Computed example of a mutant assay.
Amino acid sequence: MRILDMTTFVVLARNRHFGRTAQELNATQPAISTRLTALEQELGCRLVERGDREFKLTPEGEKALNAFQAILGDIGKLRDVLESPDASTPQLVRIGAIDSVAATWMPHLIETLHQTVPNLKIELTVEGTKLLTQGMNKGELDMMFAVDPAVGEGFRSFVSCILQMTWAGSAKIINPDRVYSVDELGSMPIISFPKDTPPYRQIAPYFQDERVLASKLTSTNSLFAIINLLIAGFGIGAIPTVTIQRELKMGLLHPIRVSKRFPPMPIIATYQSTTHQHLIQMVVEHARRSAAGFCATVDPSVAWID
């Protein structure tokens, strides 16, 4: 959701006229209409009544107006802080994310942050949960998105979204039309993250006996590597469905029909709440909206907000 579109809607609601709004914003009336349509499509509802001669906001439009005014007010305050010559707030935010987040809605978050504060520098680290947690504890990150939260003084956490996990494999080694039991999965080569990582902790209980995996497991700390090993037919793996949608569509991978469904994976955001509060809170709010916006664009059975 662009700041320009939100600003246009606030000005339109104040002027109650497309022509005056276009004149104030030095734009054309079709451009104002396009921005309004973009907002309505993104929110999935009408914001302005159509057909009446009198300009009128819908009930959803009234709610959107209040929300946009609050957001733009907070952004204005943040810009004042960042542009102040003696501001103590740094113009750098350090974000850590696991592969599953970096491959889905992280690009939208970064783009939105750059639009909001053009002079803000973003330092993105893509690592596993264990290393990201260590980075938070050492003060090397301001915010992270991982499978586990970082626990410490001044840290706050929330579930940003939940990703459904899917057993997947190449047609070279699985039959897409067959239903596999847990024992049958356990007899096949499995590609997963290393044993001391949170994703592995989900796989081991699925089989109820870690010994099942002892001689069948190939591990790597890279989601990209796991996907390519699956495509090559080296084994099967349980990974977030949203990260392999392209491969599924192209037929490079197939979802494995199973008798026991794999549990979903919450993505937990942890942020530092005691320093640079204006900056970090802005990042938190944009992160919530980016995650929610992404979930709204995909099948609700593969990614959702709790």
Score class of each variant (00 low, 15 high):
E49L: 10
F294N: 10
T34F: 04
V298K: 03
T133W: 00
V48A: 07
T274K: 01
P263V: 15
F145E: 13
H108A: 10
Q41R: 12
A171E: 15
D148M: 13
A292L: 03
A296R: 02
H17Y: 09
S222K: 08
R288N: 11
I75G: 09
A214S: 14
T112Y: 01
V302S: 09
N66P: 10
A291C: 03
Q41D: 13
E49Y: 09
G44W: 05
A204W: 00
G76W: 01
I226Y: 02
T275E: 14
E62P: 04
K138L: 15
V302R: 01
D99R: 01
M6E: 12
V182R: 03
F158Y: 11
V10C: 04
T297Y: 06
D86E: 14
K121G: 10
F193P: 05
F9A: 09
G19Q: 15
T243A: 03
V212C: 04
H108I: 10
I190P: 02
P205N: 13
E83I: 08
E153Q: 07
T270M: 07
Q115I: 10
E184Q: 14
T133C: 10
L230S: 09
T129L: 04
I236M: 03
I162S: 09
P240C: 11
R178A: 12
V283Y: 00
T197N: 02
T166W: 02
Q69T: 12
L163W: 09
R289P: 11
E42K: 05
P205A: 11
R257L: 10
G44N: 07
L47K: 02
A232L: 07
P263C: 13
C45N: 06
E140A: 15
E60V: 11
S187M: 06
I231W: 00
R257Y: 02
R46P: 13
D209S: 14
F234Q: 06
S301N: 11
L39H: 02
A87P: 06
V242L: 02
V298L: 08
S290F: 00
G233R: 02
L72W: 03
N221G: 06
D177V: 07
E140H: 02
P107Q: 09
V81M: 01
M143E: 07
K172E: 15
T104I: 06
D183E: 14
A64P: 08
E140M: 07
L217R: 02
P263W: 07
M106T: 09
I32A: 10
E127M: 13
V11A: 04
